[in-house]
Design a protein around this nucleic acid. Structure first.
Lengths: 210, 210
DNA sequence: GTCGATTTGTTCGTATGTATC
DNA sequence: TGATACATACGAACAAATCGA
């Protein structure tokens, strides 16, 4: 199992700059339309070359975070883009945002589960190695999702789940049942029971994000 | 209503290069791990500077499309990333891929609808201006989604829907009912009827993508 | 294990086109 | 109209990492 957190051993300038700009916008709470310092100034402030600044701006531009106009300047566009790559996420995300990501991830997990039930893949008894609930849950979702025709549900789950785990959001959710309970309900095709379990997860997140 | 397709009048080098690289990988059908020509060679081939090539590589790297190692080279990583920004999508996407995007978008639309019913926002009678079914549907989803606490469902819808419309995927779906039917079912909180309608959309896409 | 070639990482200087006042 | 500010783009140079002989 490769560690998906470890992006690379040597951090690169443009990644640092990208994080720095995101961090700057977040801490200064800059809204859409605010003009950023010119590239030359940014490169001075951060102590890097303009090229590195430009590479960072490009990425944030493509993510809808910034917008730059020749001759005009670089402006904040959407300070809260959807699905920021993990590398860019700065150290802290507030709970409200994390909750929204969580709900989005869970929607896809639910879809994977319900599609798997309908497909009736004659699933062998599931052996989940992980003892941690969420690690095990994610492993299970990966097993189910990889058998679906549409792999985007799983891709979205996997693009959000590691971030939530990294930020510690999942640790604070208390769950009144075990992964085994969930697997049993799945094997019995007990949709009602499954719905109850999953909706409890959402509610747990709601109470946690206060 | 601003045109979200027209990003800017003058296309920029790094965008062209990004598209060119994606196109190259797709037409050559390069799989994960394949090494790309070195940056200097690419800049020669495309007739642009190395800086522009690098900016394009950065973006594709951040999207998980490429991976570059100092001293090693640049390699294809995931030739089919999830949620490619519209600007990068080259002219053609095959129907199977479009169908997966469509299902993902519809999942979020369904969530928006079901959450809106539960919230009971005392919705006024919905006036949808658009005569085209999908334009009207999207407008309706935007009205509902913008009232939700979690705006990510709507963001994902809006990040996929324009692409599907642009690629003409939605035109080929034939729908046996009107938007008015859907709105009436919504106002009556007739979940069963709504489920029937939406599942028909999925099936229509399935038969279309053969 | 060393050396040299290859390739990306990073910086700097310069020229050009565009926007703003 | 003109002047200034700014992004766009190119090319050269060197550093650092990788890889193979």
């Amino acid at each position: 199992m490769e560690n998906i957190y470890q992006i690379r051993s040597v951090p690169r300038m443009f990644e640092e700059v990208t994080r720095a700009i995101v961090n700057y916008i977040q801490t200064e709470n800059l809204k859409k339309g605010v003009k950023l310092p010119p590239e030359r100034k940014l490169s001075e402030l951060l102590g890097v070359s303009r090229s590195s600044v430009r590479e960072a701006i490009r990425i944030l531009e493509m993510l809808g975070y910034l917008e730059s106009k020749q001759g005009g300047g670089t402006f904040v566009s959407q300070p809260e883009p959807f699905l920021i790559p993990v590398q860019i996420v700065s150290q802290y995300m507030d709970k409200q945002t994390l909750k929204k990501y969580f709900e989005m991830a869970l929607l896809n997990a639910e879809k994977i589960i319900s599609l798997s039930i309908e497909l009736d893949h004659a699933e062998p008894i599931l052996q989940i190695r992980n003892t941690d609930f969420w690690e095990g849950f994610s492993e299970w979702i990966n097993v189910l999702g990889s058998q679906l025709e549409n792999d985007y549900y799983l891709k979205l789950w996997n693009s959000i789940f590691p971030m939530l785990a990294k930020q510690g959001f999942l640790d604070e959710l208390n769950i009144g049942w075990t992964l085994q309970d969930l697997l049993i309900a799945f094997q019995n095709k007990n949709k009602k029971q499954l719905d109850t379990f999953l909706s409890q997860l959402i509610k747990g997140a709601a109470s946690s994000a206060d």
